[in-house]
């Protein structure tokens, strides 16, 4: 569905995409990761035919270089920042559905499937709508035409937790036939929306595989936070500190954070319960994606470690 061969894009002396090769098939859900400046947005802009490039790039069988307009017809796009639009939500829907020649009724239906009523919000000025609501409108517009490809450029970057969760739920309703490429800096987005992860580094593909394989390779692991009572706290700490499967142990009051590989979590919890340690609360904290890209994520990693009172084994 999307095929890049030797895709290269330079800005002056700086090479952003350096002979990138990648293939994404029909219906695949792919996360495009990489530190800032790795070339994710440039790749999207090339795919949309907005930037000239060298190499070959096809979207839905269309050569982007020779027919950018046709390529854009095949792509639904949701940007990081929703566009400022002067007018009401109805005006926005009418204008963009007009550009894509989609009947407004279909967008209206798509919006209602995502939990948004155009009847209720249509007369509101776009600037009065929340970022989450607007991103869902853009998603509804993007998929209303049954496009074969959906490009999502950090769509949840500016949303709060609740809006992000709503957007990700909405994303699950995108038809299976649609190829989705999502760029994000949030692991929960990637886990919720993608089956395959591509990592860009210096304009080239540095990783292609599943998320857990990437986390394992990079040494980034989730942390399971167990909240127990004070009497059992010492037992819990001793148990997990002696466990070879545990990478690090964090302490925060009566909570103990156990950093381990995803595949070990269930076994460790079974052992904890087997020792008769009461589990009052349980929470799994995903590692930040920033840690996978050393130049952008090191600071964030070290600051979170300091805050939690880390006890590294």
């Amino acid at each position: 569905m999307i095929s890049a061969r030797g895709l290269t894009r330079r800005f002056g002396s700086q090479t952003i995409l350096d002979g990138l090769d990648l293939e994404v098939g029909p219906g695949e859900r792919v996360a495009l990761l990489g530190r800032n400046g790795a070339g994710k947005t440039t790749f999207f802009r090339c795919a949309l035919g907005l930037l000239p490039f060298s190499g070959d790039l096809e979207v839905a069988g269309v050569d982007v270089r020779t027919d950018g307009l046709e390529a854009r017809s095949a792509i639904g796009y949701v940007p990081q920042r929703p566009p400022h639009f002067d007018g009401t939500l109805e005006d926005l829907v009418r204008f963009f559905s007009g550009l894509r020649e989609i009947p407004s009724a279909r967008v209206r239906l798509g919006m209602s499937e995502l939990g948004l009523s155009l009847d209720e919000h249509g007369r509101k000025a776009v600037r009065e709508l929340s970022g989450g609501m607007l991103q869902k409108v853009l998603l509804a517009l993007a998929v209303a035409e049954a496009v074969p490809v959906l490009l999502l450029d950090e769509p949840t970057a500016n949303l709060d937790g609740e809006a992000r969760a709503e957007f990700l739920r909405a994303l699950k309703r995108v038809p299976d036939s649609c190829t989705v490429i999502l760029s994000s800096h949030r692991l929960e987005d990637v886990r919720a929306a993608a089956d395959r992860v591509l990592v860009l580094e210096n304009g080239r593909l540095a990783f292609d595989g599943e998320l857990d394989a990437l986390l394992e390779r990079s040494g980034s692991s989730p942390t399971v936070w167990i909240c127990t009572d004070r009497t059992a706290l010492a037992n819990l700490v001793r148990l997990v500190e002696d466990d070879r499967r545990v990478i690090r142990v964090h302490r925060n009051g009566v909570s103990v954070g156990i950093e381990t590989l995803p595949g070990n979590i269930a076994d460790i919890l079974t052992d904890v319960r087997g020792e008769g340690i009461p589990v009052d609360d349980l929470r799994v904290e995903e590692p930040g994606l920033g840690g996978l890209f050393p130049s952008s994520g090191a600071a964030a990693e070290s600051s979170s470690g300091a805050a939690s009172g880390e006890a590294t084994r």
């Binding site: 802009r45 307009l69 854009r72 792509i75 796009y77 940007p79 550009l99």
Partner: peptide, 9 residues
């Protein structure tokens, strides 16, 4: 950018 990402030139 969003406008130009639509099927327009």
């Amino acid at each position: 950018e969003y406008l130009l990402a639509q099927p327009v030139t």
